[in-house]
Design a protein around this nucleic acid. Structure first.
Length: 740
DNA sequence: AGAGTGCAGCAACTT
DNA sequence: GCTGCACTCT
């Protein structure tokens, strides 16, 4: 078969080994996606397996989509019948069909972390538990941790005995599960846990899926947790054609319950497992790969392996020390601009960092320099208040028992239903054992409600109208009705602030996403389907490979991706590795950070820049951190210097200069010339009615004199001397300066 | 009874 | 720097 002849021997072996358990240890950049897609093609074409008998679990929806496309390319349209999806999506698909067998309704809501926290808060309030001693986030992560290990409420309670803190948490845990069930809701962990429960309680359901999935493949196996392991074990128990692919060196989700033992112990769980190692890297230069190998070899708990490559030596790895995080961003922007003038595309670059908090400064700099960029993760679109509000309205149309959603929006926008009224409804609902929303519908019966009654009844009427439209009309029509009747957008329009306008834009975007969904899914489009898609969408799922933009994201999000040029920003002890991991004193914690570092390094194909700052403003205070310990693990000969001190001097001209301050390598000066910042065309969208020397007025700082105006790609930076506040640098589009 | 406002507490990584 | 919450005002 010609299409398989391009595979190297171990890759080929992995493709044709289709029967029985297979552990594929695939190093970074070793072509595992190629193996997986060819393996699917081989099963269908050569082994005549029906496509729908193959299940492939990926880590993100994006990976699932890519895999399906690549299989389609190999064998044509039949590929689309293969079951390719993430753990969570797979479970939702199964539960939507069979969850009634374990006492939930098929219209169940999916709770994200924010919803779950609200529920915890609600319970702690009802139980008078002091949030000072029991932080909701800590309680939630304890509960989540238990679930990921398949520890149920009963076991947890038993094991908590004698431990005050755990006993309290176990009380919350019990009530949390009880309320989730009453609200007909599942949190992220429950999606997996309840599927396992379903399989264990309903043998015929399990058998159905066991028969269906003759061949199972799991990607990123090193990041599976206890529930996921159980789930896969159950599904694969009949045919045992289980192929897991992973790299223990890239296990970076321990905090989420990932258990590295799943991959390390695979051979003892499946003694007949075939083990194949993919150790040839096709992605990176020799220098980059060596740096990665040298860092990761400091970890003790790992399978022995050594990645190698036939690729060129390539450039040395650069480490740049900056004065502070702003200069770090400046260096990165300058280097990107230089790359662009050397013929690179923006999409050749990715900036990786440890914490989302670092993104702001970087983003600002990209914006100012006119560098097109895309920020992945952070506060995602679907976590925004206005989006969650609208989604809450949609949720309760399907599932009125979802009291978290009902209480979220009963008075949003303000409609005169205050706390007191809400409490009265709650008391009444509890008394009669009905859901909160049913209490709302009964508002005429509830004693002691005064001013709010009329408003509550109007709210109830509105929800009923939505439900009628949901039955007969289109999703688009429903959305318009919700936006119109709730007056959500109208309320924002009245605020007339930039933030409110942003929110309106976001809601419009949500609306068009819904229309897109409806058009794509055609007759199959349902409200439930839309809500489901929205609930499970992940940060990098909307990363579009066709966009010519610099990508900004966390190291975690970068897993599985590759770029010609990588910047790893914030290479400082305390930031990376994080404080938490250093303070815990556990070597495992540092090892996890080191794996994260390894993941970052191995994303780079041609050039790797490591940047750090001597001084960094984070969470409102200034830190002075040492360069990360991981840097010392990279041998000197792989670095193009010990340190390059990047010191842009901003004089009155605003020129940016780089100066090398290095006694070892002073023969190779690193310079970024002023020409780069001037090569950018003047901003197109902003016009200024003042020039240097003019007096301008600022809303906060009062009147000052313009000292300098610098052009960025998309905006002007204006330096103004305010007698009362000193010299300020402002962005023209934000500052709203008026000539006086 | 609800709305508006000042203030404390918090702040990894993510499906 | 942002968010939920207690407190005061209408």
């Amino acid at each position: 078969m010609e299409k398989y002849s391009t595979l190297n021997p171990p890759q080929y072996e992995a493709v044709i080994h289709t029967t029985g358990p297979l552990l594929l240890l695939a190093g970074a950049g070793s072509g595992k996606t190629r193996v997986l897609t060819h393996r699917v093609a081989y099963l269908i074409e050569e082994k005549k397996v029906f496509p729908w008998k193959i299940m492939a679990i990926t880590f993100t929806n994006k990976a699932a989509k890519e895999m399906r496309e690549r299989v389609d390319k190999l064998i044509g349209i039949r590929g689309s019948d293969v079951w390719v999806s993430t753990f969570h999506s797979s479970c939702v698909k199964i539960l939507r069909r069979y969850i009634n067998e374990i006492g939930y309704d098929r219209t169940f809501s999916i709770y994200d972390t924010d919803d779950a926290k609200r529920l915890i808060r609600e319970i702690m309030k009802a139980y008078n538990i002091d949030p000072k001693y029991y932080k909701e986030s800590a309680v939630l992560s304890e509960i989540s941790g238990a679930k990921n290990k398949l520890i149920g409420v009963d076991t947890y309670r038993r094991e908590a005995q004698g431990d005050m803190r755990k006993e309290t948490i176990s009380r919350i845990f019990v009530e949390y599960q009880k309320r989730l069930r009453n609200y007909n809701a599942l949190d992220f962990d429950d999606l997996l846990v309840k599927t396992v429960e379903l399989f264990e309680l309903s043998p015929k359901t399990l058998e159905y899926y066991q028969k269906l999935f003759e061949y199972i493949m799991v990607d990123e196996y090193q990041d599976t947790n206890g529930v996921q392991f159980r789930l896969i074990s159950l599904l694969a128990a009949k045919h045992r054609n289980l192929c897991v692919v992973g790299d223990d060196d890239q296990s970076i989700y321990r905090f989420r319950g990932a258990d590295i033992r799943n991959i390390l112990d695979f051979e003892s769980v499946y003694p007949d497992a075939k083990v194949i190692k993919l150790e040839q890297n096709y992605r990176s230069t020799k220098n980059i790969l060596s740096a990665a190998n040298e860092v990761i070899r400091n970890n003790r708990k790992r399978k022995v392996k050594k990645l190698w490559t036939d690729n060129d030596e390539g450039e040395l790895v650069s480490h740049i020390v900056n004065i502070n995080e702003k200069e770090e961003a400046g260096f990165i922007a300058d280097t990107i601009n230089k790359g662009i003038s050397d013929g690179r595309d923006y999409c050749d670059f990715a900036i990786l960092y440890r914490t989302n908090a670092q993104s702001r400064v970087l983003e600002e700099k990209m914006f100012r320099e006119g560098i097109p960029y895309k920020l992945i993760g952070g506060v995602s679109f679907y976590q925004r208040k206005e989006i969650k509000d609208i989604l809450a309205y949609l949720k309760i149309i399907n599932n009125g028992t979802d009291s978290i959603a009902v209480k979220r929006i009963i008075n949003v926008p303000r409609r005169g239903i205050g706390n007191t009224t809400v409490e009265k409804i709650q008391e009444y609902s509890d008394l009669y054992g009905i859901s909160f929303l049913d209490g709302v519908f009964d508002a005429t019966e509830i004693p002691n409600i005064k001013r709010g009654r009329k408003n509550v009844l109007e709210f109830a009427k509105m929800i009923n109208e939505f439900r009628e439209i949901a039955i007969s009309g289109s999703l688009e029509g429903l959305m318009n009705e919700v936006l119109d009747k709730t007056e959500y957008i109208k309320t924002l329009e009245l605020e007339n602030t930039p933030e409110a306008n942003d929110r309106i834009d976001n809601i419009k975007e949500l609306s068009s996403k819904m229309i897109d969904y409806e058009e794509q899914a055609k007759e199959e489009a349902t409200l439930l389907g839309f809500l489901e898609e929205v609930a499970l969408i992940g940060g990098i799922d909307d990363l579009n490979d066709d966009d010519n933009k610099v990508i900004l994201m966390t190291l975690h999000s970068a897993k599985g991706l590759e770029f010609p040029v990588i910047f790893m920003a914030g290479m400082e002890d305390g930031l990376f590795p994080s404080y938490m991991s250093i303070n815990s004193g556990l070597n495992e914690d540092i090892e996890e950070e080191r794996r994260l570092c390894y993941v970052g390094i191995t994303r780079a194909k041609e050039k790797l820049y490591l940047t750090s700052a001597r001084q960094r403003m984070l969470y409102g205070n200034t830190q002075y951190n040492q360069t990360t310990r991981f840097l010392a693990e990279i041998p000197k000969e792989l670095l193009d210097s010990d340190t390059i001190n990047y010191t842009p001097i901003q004089e009155n001209t605003g020129a940016i200069q780089a100066k090398r301050d290095n006694k070892f390598f002073s023969n190779k000066p690193y310079t970024v010339t002023k020409a780069i910042s001037q090569a950018i065309p003047a901003p197109a969208n902003v016009t200024l009615d003042y020039i240097a020397g003019d007096l301008v007025k600022h809303s906060k700082y009062g009147i000052g004199q313009v000292k300098m105006i610098e052009a960025g790609g998309a905006d002007y930076q204006v330096t103004v001397n305010f007698p009362s506040h000193g010299i300020k640098k402002l962005l023209a589009s934000f500052a709203g300066l008026k000539r006086v």
